[in-house]
Design a binder for these strands. Structure first.
Lengths: 201, 201
DNA sequence: GTCTATAGAAAGATAGAC
DNA sequence: GTCTATCTTTCTATAGAC
């Protein structure tokens, strides 16, 4: 049956999308270091030259992965937002961010590590959704003051990003306990920032 | 004159130390990616096999760099601590940390990036001095309460580390303005944490 | 759009001489 | 402790056929 969709190895279809998926798999399994165009091609059963029809070079594929990772991070965090107060929802964003960093550590590190083309404006496409989540939650809390909202959103993002980093550095211990600890610490620090937010502006 | 110390290319002496220095130079110039045992050997004018007499492998040299970087970070931040109140000194630690991250970006990224052997206990030797600086300043502020001191020190470290990360991601702009912005934001957030620190415990 | 084939480069690590 | 020499592996990227 020629028309059946065979996903044994993949063959003809949307190679571009398949490469992004495979790159994310490889990164999840072995970290960014363990990813290469050659390995991704091998896993998909295509020639190592095939990706060059869709991406100018390795970095361009990596950037595409970053964009997808940013969307995934933003939607994942958004989906976990809950609570009946503005404060509760901003806290939930911080919690969700740290949790995502823990659950998708290699992808998180790929996105915020040294390998993304930070200078290039294309990279903004990747980070914009994430910034939006913090900004939206902070704006709701800060009422009508856009300056206060900006400061608060950034501070909470820094705290969440910072605890994610400390967690990955093993400074909060290892294993599931460390994750819960990091999440709880990020929550507490977010509450402290909110309580002391008059010092932010 | 055979006994003159020639530093043209280096020859015989403390190769171990020279390798660490050269590795830090290479990292400063080209980032961690641009560092290799081969390149370091080349620059010192020794054979590529020479380093293996002093380090089991590449990672072991990188770890030694991490230890040195940790000491440098801790002493640099310590030297910048000033102010006549406990609060001012804790704030100065946060400022100094972000400033160091900006000034020694490649080294900072090498130390806290994906390449250090985080799992291994040896890595603690590298991070311990840095943790100590935050902990000492927080303890002075928290008075006799060790739990509060621990929480506060960690939160300020997370904020500083977080702003350093956001700065490197270009989320605070580019250039010297961005650095000053990051430092100022880290200071403000630290003050907010201190003001709202009752929420931390 | 994908394949074969290949050029070209670089690195990690080891064996054995001195 | 350092050197020469070499093995082995892996990757990026391109040229040209189908």
């Amino acid at each position: 049956m020629p028309r059946t969709t065979r996903r044994d190895r993949y063959h003809h279809g949307d190679l571009r999308a398949a490469l992004i998926d495979t790159a994310m798999e490889l990164i999840a399994e072995q970290g960014v270091q363990g990813f290469s165009l050659a390995e991704a091609s091998r896993r998909l059963g295509v020639a190592v030259s095939a990706p060059y029809r869709h991406f100018a070079d390795r970095d361009e594929l990596l950037l595409a992965v970053g964009v997808r990772a940013g969307e995934l991070l933003a939607t994942t965090v958004s989906a976990e937002i809950g609570g009946d107060s503005h404060e509760a929802r901003l806290v939930a964003v911080a919690r969700g961010y740290v949790r995502f960093a823990a659950r998708h550590r290699p992808l998180f590190e790929a996105m915020f590590g040294t390998l993304m083309p930070v200078g290039e404006p294309e990279f903004e496409r990747a980070t914009q959704p994430v910034k939006g989540v913090f900004h939206t939650a902070a704006t709701a809390l800060a009422g009508g003051d856009p300056v206060a909202a900006e400061s608060l959103g950034l501070a909470v993002a820094a705290v969440a990003h910072g605890y994610a980093g400390l967690l990955h550095l093993g400074m909060l211990g290892e294993g599931d306990d460390a994750v819960e600890h990091a999440v709880a610490r990020a929550e507490a620090a977010t509450r402290a920032l909110i309580a002391g937010r008059s010092a932010l502006t």
